[in-house]
Nucleic acid binder design. Structure first.
Length: 477
RNA sequence: GGGCCACUAGCUCAUCAGGUAGAGCAUCUCCCUUUUAAGGAGGUUGUGCUGGGUUCGAGUCCCGGGUGGCCUACCA
């Protein structure tokens, strides 16, 4: 048993020492091989023991650090019987160790450190998982530390996510947006249609909600005179979870004074093209079986036009009764209480969305679906809004922000009516936000983008769990 | 929410007609001074998810429960 060996090992070495002076990591040692070998430089390299291959008086031990693996070669005649015994018998796979020695190539041409001395760094009591088979998705998600330890591809994916988010921050800095932080705990939720998580503040004895969006706070900043703001933050929605949904997820929202949704569309297009160039293949992306070329201008299509193309007739003037009749014909489910625009949305998600593989901006949505968007400047009944679809799912959502407080109040009241009618995703009236808007809000363009889905797209993975380090799962047992 | 499938050693899995369980890796003992899924000899490892039923006998068949996966639906 490992605990028994630990005691014996503990008599010879410090089991949990405090620090280690590294001269090279595995990537640096590989890159500098020629010089290091020629000069017989002594390197000090720490990492985790991933395997042990012994031949009695020698040991080959692959040691893994964040960047990869470097093999260490221990010899009994070099280290002495006692020290060699430690490596051979008492040190286990999973333990952390620092080795010191010179680099050479073995007979089989593997870059190796010939160990002149070593420092024990930390003991592992539990063994690492078996190495020949992929861990199950459940095990990977539930025990991410093991997934990261065993799968370099998984590490790479998460490092890539980090790099993508850093690059988005750099992009917004170049565009002169200010990064801000707004409350997670909110007395009222809003900015999206979704059910919230509820919590309680003891000192104030009041109900608080975990935010479902940052929108209403970011717009207050626009009112306050900060002209370009953005936030990358977790939102929380109390809804189902599946391949593309997690109850907490990372959202990017940005707002710019004096812009409309056309400006936001350009910004979104520029940002995605830049990411595709930096993280894809020169602007081309492969997602599953699909190929997309972000160098090409993004397709732009009006919501009602896309729908007309599918249904074979313009639905702009079609009344609700006729729509319901059409829905039956297309096997589209209409639930009681669904308004005309909601039915149109249903048509859209069933008929159009699945076919939006290539990056496409869908523009000018029906009004009822967008309580925070400004009415279309030309077409009655529509709003100035766009959604970006890629590979069949929605990545971004944007509008010319409604800034007329009288109209905003009417929309809130309409939402309230929906809520009273039993729609538990409708938004409550936010008087505080309305008061801010009444102080005068400049014309503003706003955009929200799901970071997790964007990362899925850029690293070509079908499951949101692959891009979230820790996902929500039921507790075991 | 609906359908299908799975749950057996620490890990990945097997046990094809019901007769109280096995392989590889891990672990333990021994041999081996250039191995790389190292090798060789030997040993240990299980409330077979859970509760009930059928049966002389259940991991195996039946029913309930739990957990997970896939598909589907719902969800700015």
């Amino acid at each position: 048993m490992r605990l028994a060996k630990m005691e014996e090992l503990g008599e010879a070495v410090e089991l949990y020492p405090y620090r280690y002076d590294r001269t090279h990591n595995s990537a640096e040692a590989r890159a500098g091989e020629a010089g290091l070998v020629a000069a017989e430089t002594v390197v000090r390299y720490p990492g985790r023991i991933m395997a042990k291959r012994g031949t009695g008086k020698t040991m080959f031990v692959p040691i893994q650090d964040e960047w990869g693996t470097l093999q260490a070669y221990f010899r009994k005649d070099e280290l002495g019987a006692e020290r060699f015994h430690l490596v051979q018998k008492l040190i286990d796979i999973g333990d952390w160790i620092g080795v010191e020695g010179t680099l050479f190539r073995t007979r089989t041409d593997e870059l190796t450190i010939k160990v002149s001395d070593f420092t024990f760094l930390a003991k592992a009591i539990q063994p690492l998982p078996e190495k020949f088979h992929e861990m199950s998705l459940e095990n990977k998600s539930r025990r991410r530390h093991l997934d990261l330890a065993m799968n370099l591809a998984s590490r790479e994916r998460f490092k890539r996510r980090s790099a993508i988010i850093s690059d988005i921050r750099a992009f917004f800095a170049e565009e002169e947006f200010l990064e801000v932080e707004t409350p997670v705990l909110q007395p009222l939720y809003g900015g999206a249609t979704a059910r919230p998580f509820t919590t309680h503040h003891n000192a104030l004895d009041m109900t608080l909600y975990l935010r479902i969006a940052d929108e209403l706070y970011l717009k207050r900043l626009i009112v306050g005179g900060l002209e370009r703001v953005y936030e990358i933050a977790k939102d929380f929605r109390n809804e189902g979870m599946d391949r593309t949904h997690n109850p907490e997820f990372t959202m990017l929202e940005c707002y710019a004074a004096y812009w409309d949704y056309h400006d936001m569309m350009d910004l979104t297009e520029n940002m995605l093209r830049r990411l595709a160039v930096r993280f894809g293949d020169e602007g081309k992306l492969t997602y599953g079986e699909h190929e997309m070329d972000f160098n090409q201008p993004f397709r732009r299509v009006r919501f009602m036009d896309a729908l007309a193309g599918k249904v074979g007739q313009d639905l702009m003037q079609t009344d609700t009764a006729a729509l319901k009749e059409l829905a039956r014909k297309h096997h589209i489910e209409v639930k009681p209480g669904m308004g005309r625009d909601k039915i149109l949305d249903e048509f859209f998600s069933v008929l159009v969305e699945p076919e939006l593989i290539q990056h496409t901006f869908v523009m000018d949505h029906p009004k009822e679906l967008s309580p925070l968007a400004k009415a279309h400047r030309k077409t009655e009944g529509l709003v100035e809004r766009f959604e970006l679809f890629v590979a069949g799912f929605e990545v971004a959502n944007s509008f010319s922000e409604l800034n007329d407080p009288r109209e905003q109040r009417r929309r809130f009241v309409a939402q309230k009516a929906l809520m009273d009618a039993g729609d538990d995703e409708a938004q409550p009236i936010d008087e505080d936000f309305l008061a801010a808007m009444e102080q005068g809000m400049p014309p503003t363009g706003g955009m929200g983008l799901g970071i997790d889905r964007l990362v899925m797209l850029l690293v070509d993975t079908a499951n949101i769990r692959d891009v979230l380090l820790f996902t929500h799962m039921r507790p075991e047992q």
